[in-house]
Design a protein around this nucleic acid. Structure first.
Length: 799
DNA sequence: TCGGTTCAGAGTATT
DNA sequence: TCTGAACCGA
């Protein structure tokens, strides 16, 4: 297949054409990772080594999955519909629909997103009369998801104290509620698929025999359950092809375990580790900076990016006195870039946390520079859309109490909290859903409830004869949502969004090859579309190596409505608009992962902000921040700017920050300081820093004035110290006066340092005080919380 | 049931 | 400083 392999470098080619063995591809930023993954898949199919039905490719985001499918379609003359290419959750959803009986689920089970899940948990807690001050629902949610991601059901959860005993009780009650209502949350999709494969041998063997090649994207982002799921799915004849970059692992906080990469190499791919180190994105100065920075991380598999694209431009560093001045400088720089011919969409402004965007937006907005901020609400997360979906869910499953509660009084029908409490009591007493309990309650309000139930029931019977789009239109009108938003002051946008929901449904139907005129609630056992994508396609069936075990693959008849609802839960849709206009791209560094721009500004490079102060108390926290910085740097193709400010308004207070250690970790020869290096750290009025900004308002006024107080003007370092006195975090460079406590002489320990304790396990130093015999360190342990330990007594080893 | 007021908390986020 | 959630009075 010379076409497929053309223009691949030797490492890429080696990865693509690897024999059927487990392999780990360590793919650096901009090294053609997605290309290798998709070409590998296409190559396997086009050389006849695997049929389309015998490969499974899994990603984390729908965007990545879609991208992969698009590329495969372009490379191969086959239909990709029916191929197992999707997100972990999407594939598990498909699997559970197909085997819903074995999984003990209704065929049209609903999927709760995080918001729905939280609402469901609140309901559980209220039912148990739990004091939600003591047990905040968010914590319970965190606990439950954590347990599920560790593969533990309530019976297996560890109970060590009263607190965990209660948590496990809530977990159990929540599970019962979900089961009763026929709903699953995101983690449940995975866990239930995993358990089904594990306990059902014929089923497992069927899929193991089928999937000869399992390809995993962004492997460094997998959590423990996902990795276990992959290992279970990969049978003795299968090859696992994992692509990832441990240096870009930035999602530990949501359960990702970088350790999976090393584990995978050790257990599967000891002999097949391929590094893709040639970078096709950035010039050398930028790559040097990235390489140099990331080398400070201890625990990594190790690789260095290189390019033959030439030196390019040095990394520009800018220091400002205030955050608003930083924004002003940014604006001027952007203006001159645009004047020089840059397109706005090729300029990105990155920041560590969303709160930083405001002041930057303000500067751009005031100057009428078009910009687009990533993040925020997505289409299917909007309140009005969630309301409409809740009505639709009630049509599909009246026992869905989450949906019921969401819309029972929206638009207002005079059904208040008191009424609902009574209804919930009734439902609990009878072990039934709210919807069914309506018929059992007595009293004045019951007629209002009955009217609501009648409405839902009417909408349901109407939907049966209508195509999906018309059924949805009927629901948003008939429910009174449209009329409701007409009375709202800002309701026009919401009405437009509701109308857009009809279009989204039409798009869903056409993307899945479902006839537009099929009635919304009719199952599609033999029609094209939803069902067909759930089953191995008939024309692929003959190449499945082992025949399915009897009854292993059941007929699935998912209605267009049920399919659309699942789609809405699994794909939250586009981020908000601004598209189409050539605009500056603004986003967090996390959101920028996977993207690239000609010009990148990384802003707010200050201690406490980036690295973020909260990360100091996390195991591996600083290294993760550094990886985040690495991701930020490697987004830039040609021009990279980094800026930091001496002062910044945060939570309504001026904070005095030191420049980020990450700037000190960059190689000097690849940098170009736009302001005099190190100027502000010692003297705000220090010797000549260049640029027009010097005249723009650095005069005494700004510092001498009331705003920042005289203390800063006279002794900036001392004032800066105050913002850090509380945390004392990470002060390593010279100005030891900053720490409010005098640190122990013991040079082995620093704040942010990883340590190991015989009994408490691994932790991170978060505080140091005293000296000599009295030296104590505060350590936050992964398992046992935060403790002060006397160095003279405790046996602590640096990790 | 609705609207205003008060208060705590404020990091990154996909499915 | 700003936001969202909780709370209280009409």
């Amino acid at each position: 297949m010379p076409d497929l392999l053309a223009n691949l470098n030797p490492q890429q080619r080696a990865a693509v054409t690897l024999p059927a063995q487990h392999a780990l591809i360590l793919a650096g930023a901009g090294s053609g990772k997605t290309r290798v993954l998709t070409t590998r898949l296409a190559w396997l199919i086009s050389t006849g080594q695997a049929s389309p039905a015998a490969v499974l490719a899994v990603t984390f985001t729908n965007k990545a999955a879609k991208e992969m499918l698009t590329r495969i379609s372009a490379m191969l003359p086959i239909s990709t519909r029916g191929m197992w290419v999707g997100t972990f959750h999407g594939l598990c959803n498909r699997f559970l629909r197909t085997h819903h009986r074995d999984a003990a689920l209704p065929q049209s089970f609903q999927i709760l997103d995080s918001q729905d899940q939280l609402a469901a948990i609140k309901r559980v807690l209220r039912g148990l009369n739990v004091d939600d001050q003591k047990f905040p629902p968010r914590n319970v949610q965190y606990f439950i998801n954590g347990e599920k991601e560790e593969g533990r059901r309530p019976d297996a959860a560890e109970v060590v104290d009263e607190y965990s005993r209660r948590m496990v009780d809530f977990y159990r009650a929540y599970e019962e509620q979900c089961q009763r209502e026929g709903v699953v949350d995101f983690a449940e999709l995975l866990l239930r698929s995993y358990e089904l494969l594990q306990r059902n041998q014929p089923l497992r063997e069927h899929y193991q025999a089928r999937f000869r090649h399992i390809l995993v994207d962004e492997f460094q982002d997998t959590n423990d359950l996902q990795y276990r799921w992959l290992k279970l799915l990969a049978g003795p004849q299968a090859s696992l092809f994992a692509v990832g970059d441990d240096d870009q692992s930035i999602y530990a906080f949501r359960g990702a375990n970088v350790g999976n990469m090393a584990a995978f190499e050790r257990d599967y791919a000891r002999d097949n580790l391929i590094k893709l180190e040639q970078n096709y994105r950035s010039h050398a100065h930028i790559l040097n900076a990235a390489n140099h920075l990331i080398r400070q991380n201890i625990r990594r598999l190790g690789k260095d990016l290189w390019t033959d694209a030439g030196e390019g431009e040095p990394v520009r560093i800018y220091e400002s006195l205030t955050d608003s001045e930083e924004a002003q400088w940014l604006l001027e720089e952007i203006r001159s870039l645009i004047a020089d011919g840059s397109s706005r969409s090729e300029i990105a402004i990155l920041y560590r946390s969303n709160a930083q965007s405001r002041i930057l937006e303000h500067a751009l907005f005031s100057a009428s520079v078009p910009y687009r901020v990533y993040g925020g609400l997505r289409f299917f997360e909007r309140a009005e859309i969630k309301h409409a979906l809740a009505y639709l869910r009630l049509l599909e499953n009246p026992d869905d109490d989450t949906a019921f509660l969401r819309v029972v009084n929206l638009p207002a029908r005079g059904i208040g909290a008191r009424t609902l409490e009574l209804l919930q009591d009734q439902a609990r007493a009878n072990g039934t859903s709210l919807y069914r309990a309506v018929a059992m309650v007595q009293g004045g309000a019951s007629s209002k409830l009955a009217q609501f139930v009648a409405l839902a029931s009417r909408l349901r019977s109407q939907a049966q004869g209508l195509p999906l789009t018309e059924a949805i239109d009927n629901v948003i009108e008939g429910s009174g949502l449209i009329a409701f938003y007409k009375t709202e002051r800002e309701g026009q946008d919401r009405i437009e969004n509701l109308r857009e929901l009809v279009n989204a449904a039409a798009a869903y139907l056409s993307e899945n090859g479902i006839d537009r005129d099929v009635p919304a609630s009719v199952g599609l056992a033999n029609a094209a579309g939803t069902t067909a994508t759930l089953l191995p396609r008939a024309d692929l069936q003959d190449v499945v190596d082992a025949p399915p075990a009897p009854g292993a693959v059941q007929q699935v008849a998912l209605s267009p409505l049920a399919g659309f609802l699942a789609h809405a839960s699994l794909e939250s849709g586009e981020r908000q608009a601004g598209e189409g206009v050539d605009s500056i791209q603004m986003m967090t560094v996390h959101a920028a992962k996977g993207l690239e721009f000609d010009t990148v500004f990384v802003t707010g490079l200050e201690e406490g902000l980036f690295p973020h102060e909260n990360s100091a108390a996390e195991v591996d926290g600083l290294e993760e921040e550094r990886r985040l910085m690495y991701v930020a740097i490697t987004r830039a193709r040609r021009r990279l700017y980094m800026s930091f400010s001496q002062t910044r308004l945060l939570h309504g207070q001026t904070r005095y920050n030191l420049k980020s250690r990450f700037i000190d970790e960059l190689p000097e020869q690849d940098l170009k300081w736009l302001t005099a290096k190190g100027r502000g750290r010692y003297d705000a009025y220090g010797s000549g820093y260049g640029g027009a900004q010097a005249d723009a308002g650095y005069g005494g006024g700004r510092f001498g004035g009331q705003r920042n107080g005289g203390a800063f003007a006279s002794r900036p370092v001392a004032t800066r110290a105050t913002s850090y006195a509380g945390t004392g975090a990470w002060r390593e460079e010279g100005d030891g006066a900053i720490a409010s406590r005098s640190p122990p002489r013991d040079a082995r320990f620093r704040i942010g340092q990883g340590v190991a304790h015989a009994r408490f396990g691994e932790g991170v130093v978060t505080g140091i005080e005293g000296s000599g015999e009295d030296a104590r360190v505060q350590v936050k342990f992964a398992q046992h919380g935060s403790k002060w330990l006397a160095l003279a007594i405790a046996k602590l080893d640096p990790v």
